[in-house]
């Protein structure tokens, strides 16, 4: 029974959106790390991990998980936050990357941030509109902690880039 309910809860969790990028859900983002049944206390533990330590969306995500599951009659839910292993953009699914691109956000390059970054090496990022790699970084910090601000040199549009982490 527990296994069947677990499969259902994993499905239900796909209904919880990322508050800052609502086209992606918390499963696609790789924020939900585990789901455990605590037989002693009769509670489900949903284990999540923050994208960034200071991500202001984490509290909202925690509340949304409890609310969405409660609406689907799963009421004995506790959300635990863990830091380790640290979240990486490599956990985002290919579908998630494609969804980002289609909404005008350049998806993160695969292979998390390397040490080259320390010495100021910047990767070539393709414009999500015209695919040109003639782009420049305007600011390392964009509309949210997880994004940088770029500008395309060909179509001249500014765009967000989901930074590797």
């Amino acid at each position: 029974m527990v296994e069947v309910e677990a499969d259902l809860i994993w499905e239900y969790l796909k209904m919880v959106e990322d508050p800052e990028i609502p086209i992606l859900n918390v499963i696609e983002m790789g924020i939900v790390r585990d789901l455990k049944w605590d037989e002693g206390n009769k509670k489900w533990h949903v284990v999540i991990t923050p994208t960034y330590s200071g991500c202001p969306a984490m509290k909202a995500i925690e509340e949304d998980i409890i609310e969405v599951l409660a609406e689907l009659q799963v009421k004995n839910v506790v959300v635990d936050t863990v830091l380790s292993p640290p979240w990486t953009t490599d956990w985002m699914t290919d579908e998630a990357r494609e969804k980002l691109r289609s909404t005008g956000i350049a998806p993160p390059e695969k292979g998390s941030a390397d040490k080259g970054l320390l010495m100021g090496k910047v990767k070539d990022i393709a414009c999500p509109r015209c695919s040109s790699t003639n782009t420049i970084m305007v600011s390392q910090f964009g509309t949210t902690a997880c994004k940088a601000l770029y500008k395309c040199g060909d179509c001249l549009e500014p765009f967000d880039y989901f930074k590797c982490i």
Binding site: P50, Y52, S53, G54, V82, L83, S84, P85, P86, W87, T88, S112, A113, L117, L118, Q140, F141, A145, K163, I165
Partner: peptide
């Protein structure tokens, strides 16, 4: 775990 998480942010 704290260090593994934070270092990624501090790079930026």
């Amino acid at each position: 775990g704290f260090a593994q998480k934070s270092i990624k942010e501090v790079r930026y």
